[in-house]
Amino acid sequence: MSLIDVKNLTVQFKTDEGLVTAVDDVSFSLKPGEVMGLVGESGSGKSVTAKSLMKLNARNTVYGSDSRITLHLDDGPVDVMGLKRPRDMQVVRGGAVSMIFQEPMASFAPAMTIGSQMVEQLLIHTNMNKKQAKDLSIEMLDRVGILDPAIRFGQYAFELSGGMRQRAMIAMALSTKPKLLIADEPTTALDVTIQAQVLDLMRDLVSEFGMGIIFITHDLSVVAQTADKVAVMYLGRILESGPVRDVIRTPAHAYTRGLLNALPRLDDLDAPLTPIPGDIPSPLERPNGCVFHPRNPELQPGSRYETERPPLTEVSPGHFAALFPEDVPSLP
């Protein structure tokens, strides 16, 4: 039984220049206790996809008519796309779904103490009274490894270091016991040592709480360290998805290979860094066929990919890539 099913999600934005497609026919599902990495460069639509799960996109958003997001909770399925009133949306905004943002300094209100922000959201989303909310908040701060949680509870965001702020953010996101946690680049602004601590913490929390996590990042090594499965996005489409080991060790799509070849690796200092040729096209000029074909060095001119959109084809069990079946590499 899956926790969340996303089917044919298409998101467009109305702008002065016309409709801009940010997410194009994206489908995936996540089980409880599973961590999915959503990887892509800037403009790939990974954050827009995640925000759609909470209907947090701006007012000029147009969702595709056959887009379906279904959240399976204990008291029955919730059709997220069908939520209209802000009161109904509370279930996906901080109730059953929580989100951690990239910049912990920008996501805490500067003029309220950490504690009062944690208590505030608990009072909205649970039936706790103030005393219970305070006790739980302090307990959560303790759980994420913050020393002297009772003192930190009364402090402001600026009094905490970057790593501690991100821990407090995680404590706050987890205090409502969400079924699904969306983490949008949670470690990008942090130093490597702090990043390692936060990743450790998230691994522990999955095994303890059994929640599903969608982990958005541009960093494939962070995905390798945290996720069970991964979806690689480019210009709003999933080009490859599957178990994290299969995708990273035997990438089937040229874009995934390109990302891996551009990554500086510590195990081979002599390996040249190979950039993906060309630039990301403007969102107003989406390529026909496969969105990656203008930058794909492996394609011959005049190939099918220039006009036809390749389907997601299974290359090995559970491992899909946007390729025509005849191009699927045969397994050794």
Binding site: V192, A196, D200, S221, A224, Q225, V244, I248, L263, L266
Partner: peptide, 15 residues
């Protein structure tokens, strides 16, 4: 040691 490795089976270590 804290640098995340691209190998899923080789866990980076938090100091």
């Amino acid at each position: 040691a804290a640098i995340p490795s691209l190998d899923p089976d080789q866990k980076s270590r938090a100091p």
